[in-house]
Amino acid sequence: MANTITVLYFARLRETFGMASENMALPYDVASLEGVRATLAARGGVWAHELAAGRAFRAAVNQDIASADTAVKAGDEVAFFPPVTGG
């Protein structure tokens, strides 16, 4: 638990990945949102496709919209989702 983060997926990404959330061990050399994205994309398949750099997805860290260089540490809640379409 000490070195894990919670990762949430919403809408199309939740369906494509087949899960709404997971606990992920934070690799020792990962300290940013970009690092988390690259770790997930390295799983290959739909992960590599949907989370490729330059794809139109959004992310949040601890429920605030985040960018590639946003810091991520153990215990954080990270979320990946498509561009929003409410209203």
Partner: peptide, 27 residues
């Protein structure tokens, strides 16, 4: 408030159409 809600608040729409279900794309 409405303009920012459309582009910042985390809501997503999935439509049921005659051609099946589809996620709405951001505009």
């Amino acid at each position: 408030i409405m303009d920012f809600l459309k582009t910042r608040a985390p809501f997503w729409k999935k439509e049921q159409t005659g051609k099946g279900a589809r996620w709405v794309d951001a505009r």
